[in-house]
Design a protein around this nucleic acid. Structure first.
Length: 200
DNA sequence: ACCGGGATGTTCT
DNA sequence: GAACATCCCGGTG
């Protein structure tokens, strides 16, 4: 798309506390996949940072496991994990390879493929129900474990994150993270202030 | 509006 | 066994 630029590797190769708020207003795009010729996308309006070294809630905090191989890998890749026995959640790996940091994408404002999103998410009654949660957006965009490890910085990738020229959020809303029992005090969740598509 | 519980399977103690 | 980076549905006020 003209005017849209794929975020480069350098963007991700930094501390997730820096990357996370800068991912707000960027656009997550999924193309191809199970439904050929379909392109769906949404603007990132809510994120959380996970930092393996000092964050007890991070999957990587207790060292490498088979599940977290991608999160310990190089930055700029998609880390997808299976949650509560039925949901998928998607992260962008940050920091350098071997560190184990990532940013969880928690909510999108739908842009392209809204009809397809409603088909995939029969429970959604309103547009703001389509992508207002980390597992909801994976369902709407058809992101599953098959896409774990995808390079987000390659033009040919089925999943990319692009900058479409909308600026960074000047004063992101910052709170503690959602749904955790460990490291609950860390204020590592950021949102676009006033956006209707954030999670509850 | 809020609250409680069930679904469902991988990972870790 | 218990915990888990969740969601949905049905209760009640």
């Amino acid at each position: 798309m003209s005017g849209s630029v794929i975020l480069p590797r350098d963007f991700y190769d930094r501390d997730p506390l820096v990357v996370a708020p800068q991912l707000l207003n960027k656009v997550l795009v999924v193309r191809g996949g199970p439904d050929e010729l379909v392109r769906v996308s949404g603007r990132i309006v809510e994120v959380e940072a996970y930092r393996g070294l000092d964050d007890e809630a991070a999957h990587t905090h207790r060292g490498p496991t088979p599940r977290t191989a991608t999160m310990f890998g190089p930055p700029g890749h998609l880390y997808v994990y299976f949650s509560y026995g039925m949901h998928w959640c998607a992260n962008a790996v940050t920091s350098s390879a071997g560190v184990g940091d990532a940013v969880l994408v928690r909510a999108l404002e739908p842009i392209e493929g809204v009809d397809m999103m409603f088909e995939r998410r029969s429970a959604a009654g309103r547009t703001r129900d389509l992508c207002s949660g980390p597992a909801k957006l994976c369902q709407a965009l058809s992101i599953s474990g098959a896409l774990d490890g995808v390079d987000l910085t390659e033009e040919a990738s089925p999943v990319v994150i692009v900058d479409d020229g909308v600026g960074v959020v000047s004063e992101p809303q910052q709170t503690t993270r959602i749904g955790l029992s460990k490291s609950v005090e860390l204020p590592w969740r950021w949102m676009v202030p006033g956006n209707r598509h954030v999670s509850r």
